[in-house]
Design a protein around this nucleic acid. Structure first.
Length: 490
RNA sequence: CGGGGUGUAGCGCAGCCCGGUUAGCGCACCUGGUUUGGGACCAGGGGGUCCCAGGUUCGAAUCCUGGUACCCCGACCA
């Protein structure tokens, strides 16, 4: 009643916006294309960040921080790179304001023009490789495995909360290696880290693959990606890992002395995931009643709603449940006791469903008498009455079950929406249905472009470990040895 | 940058065609009371440069001109 959510099948975009705004994740800001990440949404990001950061550290990476501003000349050192980003860069041209002599507040001081303009980083390859040049002399300095958590700015024409905003938060790993083989291994390793995170923490199945040349990162030799299917059947790129070859090493003249005493250019990778993952999480799991958070990332895992008349009953319930709350916290499970006496239980139920808290406990006078508690799980909305005694173990297991069940559901949905097309006619028909299509492709950018023009579908990836089979391209009829994934994408 | 839409209280909207009391409704908010096992009720109360600027008029939320912001759909991208 207080907060209505547009149903998915009425208006999917509006449903998504409703969840972000009414679920308390983010808000529009006064700055075009930029959003405010609210505490609940930021808590989710913190949980994602912590899990990823741990995985990066476990694979030998360390964190550092590089400047927000990049000298304009740096960006142009790698031709493909500047080509890819030039159209969406914010540029700093001045460093001082002054009072408007005509009385209109402050204006840019025309005398404070920067000698060299600064670009607000859309990504940090150039500023980082400029440093790496000074840090790398010999093979003993390699590999160099650095990550940074940062904000970046890409001046997008059209933005959507979390999915595409002008400013967003992300991490970017930048590594340097002595050999191409080693760099490729690193690229693939980080892709697997992302895939594992998506599946184990986000409960979101992903397909690992390589991008076609058209979809490749600006400046990369190879871009690997994880692709997820959203509930409307569209694809969403959830993370990318790039093999950069020696492009940046050459652009910034980063050479090292080998064991044998030869000067060689180093080999590079970069990889990143962003707050876009929050958008993916929402669209992978949520329903018409609100957000559905996977327990491993939920900012709040368990909420307790007491049902009481008067302060005396409230206190009795609180005293009864205090040991449970302590037991849950001892297990590392976050729990909140909602003692707000201004809102009725029914309102709270709806509210916590809206924000996707995985487990809700309700307890009233009747339960106190019986030694029971009502347990409701958000993902299936099932409710059951359980003995209060030892309930912490039940809840701990329930969170595990919910996590697994959410993954299974998303996986079943995805697999039910993947089809094979063998002819152009089939493809045209299937692309109007939600989902991914496996189809043969002749490997040319021209064909890919044509298909995109005609159907809005792009090649999401060429899956890793893709089965090899002889076939003909659905569009050109030329021979092909493997199927690739086509879909409409975010 | 093209197409469409919307700017009226914190949020969602009505009023605008056809100018004329004090600009209204729902939710939220504040006070008091009764309530509390799925979005409570009663009574009282506070809150508005009607997006901005110009124009027409005795009189503009309403008509005219220009601007601006945001949302949605496309082309570009994570």
């Amino acid at each position: 009643m207080a907060k209505e959510i547009t149903a998915r099948d009425v208006d999917y975009s509006q449903w998504y916006n409703d969840l972000v705004l009414k679920g308390g994740l983010a808000d529009y800001s006064s700055v075009r294309g930029c959003m405010v990440i609210k505490p609940y949404g930021y808590g989710l990001w913190e949980n994602m960040r912590d899990a990823l950061d741990k995985a990066f550290k476990e694979t030998g990476h360390v964190n550092a921080y590089f400047p927000l501003f990049i000298p304009k000349s740096f960006l142009s050192k790698e031709a493909a790179h500047v080509e890819g980003f030039a159209k969406e860069c914010a540029v700093v041209t001045h460093y001082r304001l002054m009072n408007d002599p005509n009385g209109g507040g402050v204006i840019v001081d025309p005398s404070a023009k920067l000698e060299e303009e600064l670009i607000v980083r859309p990504t940090s390859e150039t500023i980082i490789w400029n440093s790496y040049k000074n840090w790398i002399q010999s093979y003993r300095d390699l590999p160099l495995l650095i990550n940074q958590w940062a904000n970046v700015v890409r001046w997008e024409m059209r933005t959507r909360l979390f999915l595409r905003t002008a400013e967003f938060l992300w991490q970017e790993g930048h590594t340097a290696h002595a050999t191409a083989e080693e760099a490729i291994i690193e690229t693939e390793k980080m892709l697997h880290v992302y895939a594992k995170f998506a599946e184990e923490f986000m409960a979101m199945p992903v397909i690992k693959g390589k991008k076609s040349a058209n979809e490749r990162f600006a400046g990369a030799l190879d871009t690997y990606c994880i692709e997820a299917m959203m509930q409307d059947g569209q694809a969403l790129q959830a993370g990318t890992s790039h093999f950069l070859g020696q492009n940046f090493a050459k652009a910034f003249d980063v050479q090292f002395l080998t064991k044998e005493g030869k000067q060689e250019y180093v080999w590079a990778t970069s990889w990143g995931v962003s707050t876009r993952l929050i958008g993916a999480l929402i669209m992978a799991h949520s329903d018409d009643d609100g957000l559905v958070m996977p327990p491993k990332l939920a900012p709040l895992q368990v909420v307790i709603v007491p049902i009481f008349k008067g302060a005396e009953q409230l206190n009795m319930i609180f005293d009864k449940l205090k040991p449970l709350m302590d037991a849950l916290k001892a297990k590392g499970i976050s729990v909140k006791f909602d003692d707000d006496d201004q809102k009725r239980p029914g309102f709270k139920f709806a509210e916590y469903e809206m924000i996707g808290v995985p487990v809700r406990l309700a307890i009233g006078a009747r339960d106190l008498e019986n030694g029971t508690v009502e347990v409701a799980r958000r993902d299936t909305k099932e409710k059951s009455s359980q003995q209060l005694e030892g309930i912490e173990n039940y809840i701990e297991q329930l969170l595990v079950d919910i996590q697994q069940s959410m993954y299974n559901k998303a996986l079943a949905f995805r697999d039910a929406n993947i089809r094979k097309a063998d002819t152009w006619e089939q493809f045209l028909k299937m692309i109007e249905e939600p989902g991914f299509i496996y189809a043969h492709w002749d490997g040319t950018g021209e064909t890919e472009e044509k298909i995109k023009e005609l159907t809005k579908a792009t090649i999401r990836c060429i899956p890793l470990d893709n089965p090899q089979e002889d076939g003909v391209c659905i569009f050109s009829g030329k021979p092909s040895k493997e199927r690739v994934i086509f879909a409409r994408a975010y």
